[in-house]
């Protein structure tokens, strides 16, 4: 029943706590540090309401021990900005400047397409949708549905969620890079997360 000092960067802020080994990351975020954006829906790893980004990858924080997150960088939906990784909004800064809600294009698309009702799944759904688009900027509806299968929504029937991700894709374009060769794929796997 060991206790552990942990520190993590959450939405840009340094947070520390002493936690029991058994404490789940989602409870450290919600109760120790007050980040209530990730919610708890199923507790079995199915629903994805507790999704956060951990060191750049979306994870289900109800299946991660808080102590495992020691030293990591965590982003909740409260900490995201702008477009997903590797993408830029078509029209660039003008669009962002005109958007007084401060939403990124994915959030704005959920708003415009009525892609949320009760909002409980929304933080996880937004984070996973951004992640999906970063990996596949032009997904088909089938790819979106398959890609969101780790995020359960009981309100929308997913119809407008899929519409929202499609709409977000239309708002986004890959950032032009200066032609560097892609890393050797096999070597790249070395950098995988824990």
């Amino acid at each position: 029943m060991s206790e552990h000092e942990i520190a993590a960067t959450v939405d840009g802020a340094t947070e520390t706590a002493t936690v029991e080994a058994r404490r789940l990351l989602v409870h450290a975020l919600r109760e120790n540090w007050g980040y209530t954006q990730p919610t708890v829906g199923c507790e079995s790893g199915k629903c994805g309401a507790c999704t956060v980004e951990m060191d750049g990858e979306v994870v289900k924080s109800c299946c991660v021990l808080a102590v495992q997150a020691d030293g990591s960088e965590i982003t909740t939906v409260g900490g995201i900005e702008g477009a997903p990784d590797g993408l830029a909004e078509v029209g660039g800064d003008d669009v962002a400047a005109a958007d007084d809600d401060g939403f990124g294009p994915v959030q704005r698309s959920f708003h415009e397409e009525h892609g949320l009702q009760c909002g409980y799944c929304t933080p996880g759904m937004i984070l996973r949708s951004r992640d999906l688009l970063a990996a596949n900027p032009d997904p088909s509806r089938e790819e979106i549905r398959e890609g969101l299968k780790g995020n359960v929504c009981r309100c929308t029937g997913y119809e407008n969620v899929v519409d929202a991700v499609e709409a977000a894709a239309r708002k986004l374009e890959p950032i032009e890079t200066d032609g560097g060769a892609p890393e050797d794929a096999v070597d790249a796997a070395d950098g995988g997360a824990d």
């Binding site: 109760e31 209530t36 409260g78 939403f103 708003h111 949320l116 909002g119 409980y120």
Partner: peptide, 22 residues
């Protein structure tokens, strides 16, 4: 009109019962 309820949820600023009384 777009829903006024959305903004808080999209930022994770909603407050559900379990968010209170930590």
């Amino acid at each position: 009109p777009l829903r006024r309820e959305d903004a808080r949820a999209l930022r994770g600023e909603t407050t559900y019962t379990d968010d209170f009384g930590q």
